[in-house]
Design a protein around this nucleic acid. Structure first.
Lengths: 214, 214
DNA sequence: CCCACTTTGTGCGTGCTTTCACAAGCGCGT
DNA sequence: ACGCGCTTGTGAAAGCACGCACAAAGTGGG
């Protein structure tokens, strides 16, 4: 389920606050979901709650981490060291969650050799070698749209079966390869769409009703 | 529908290639969806296809743009000018799609006054004033998690009803306010989850079967 | 030991989304 | 003018996710 990471984040926040047990109701509200849905999700990975009490935070953190595969280390390679690639390389949030940036690659020779986030940028010609020697299993593509498909194909042929794509194109990959796409323009467009519907439909201003959960 | 922006992107790619008309089948495969779904989506905004021929690319681009509200200009404010905030500010893809970065804000006085992407970074205390004078209707939050809720609340009280949140927290906002969340760690965790399932389930290597659509 | 209270786990109805499959419509060649 | 092939638009079926509501299970107090 795609919601497990959200639960995990909420649980870790609770853990930092020293909470030992949590009810499905409380956790659900922290994660922004329905409590029945949360209980059903958790029951799918085996039942770890105690009726009348709730869930033990620490144990649940461990169970979800294991289910998500975060108990092992994942080596990540980023291709395309522009603004976004650099931002990702410097983002600290990955290391603490089982992900390690293992390599930075770019097609621009002027970029190669630069030191970004304590890593030397290497030329994309070394992709296959880097994947092999560093054991890369997740590829991140932050290239311009035109280059993305080529990089994806090379990743797949090098044995990388998980790709996170920031380029605004739909990637063609063989069956069995997992691609997730993050497109910032599309997110904005969806917001604009809803904003316009609000404006079209009715004349009332921005909602100021009582504070509600998402 | 959340798929319209994807269709739009595919259509614009076709337009650049000089294509005049496109069948639902071809467009669907370019957008990575089922053709029946695409036809149903398009029929919901009125029918613009010709049986036996397909859809006129240019007209469809216009219709979808209008439906998404991209014929008007949306002013965007970015709060939190760290690596990611800077990357977004410098990303050129927004301007061409009806979005204009109107202001950059940060809480760190050392950051205030710096020039990023031809804009002066202003202190977050000016948020309300900036929203008013620049007509900001979309807020982007790229602050640390701890600051995100406060910024969101100020955005809402200033009249911004559309928020794009990159901070790893669930935002509490009143009804009627639209929040979209992009969490890079969560995307990686979902990839890791699937990668592990592949590894658990069976001993066969990475799929190398015939080329397939997503 | 029993009872009242809390919280989990889940069966079931409901509504939405996706997909199939096909009739209706359009253009082109003859 | 006519028929053939291609493509749209949509009714109907299947699948899925969501959330209610309740039985089962555990806790703590008297």
């Amino acid at each position: 389920m795609a919601r497990l990471p959200v639960y995990l984040r909420a649980l870790q926040a609770l853990q930092d606050r020293g909470t030992l047990t949590v009810s499905s109701e409380a956790l659900a509200s922290a994660a922004g979901v329905n409590s029945a849905k949360l209980r059903k999700d958790l029951s799918h990975l085996g039942s770890y709650g105690t009726r009348g009490v709730g869930y033990e935070v620490e144990y649940l953190v461990y169970q979800i981490s294991r289910e998500l595969g975060l108990t092992q280390d994942w080596a990540v390679a980023i291709v395309g060291i522009g603004n976004l690639g650099r931002a990702l390389a410097n983002y600290g949030g990955f290391g603490t969650r089982g992900f390690r940036i293992a390599a930075l690659l770019d097609a621009d020779s002027a970029m190669v050799g630069q030191n970004v986030a304590s890593l030397d940028v290497r030329h994309i010609d070394n992709l296959e070698e880097v994947v092999r020697t560093k054991g890369v299993s997740i590829g991140v593509i932050t290239t311009p749209a035109a280059a993305a498909q080529g990089v994806a194909t090379r990743f797949v042929e090098a044995g990388v079966a998980s790709i996170l794509n920031f380029a605004p194109v739909v990637l063609n990959v063989p069956d069995g390869v997992d691609v997730r796409k993050v497109d910032l323009s599309i997110e904005l467009q969806i917001l604009a769409f809803h904003a316009q519907r609000r404006a079209d439909g009715d004349g009332r201003g921005v909602g100021r009703a009582g504070l509600e959960l998402t």
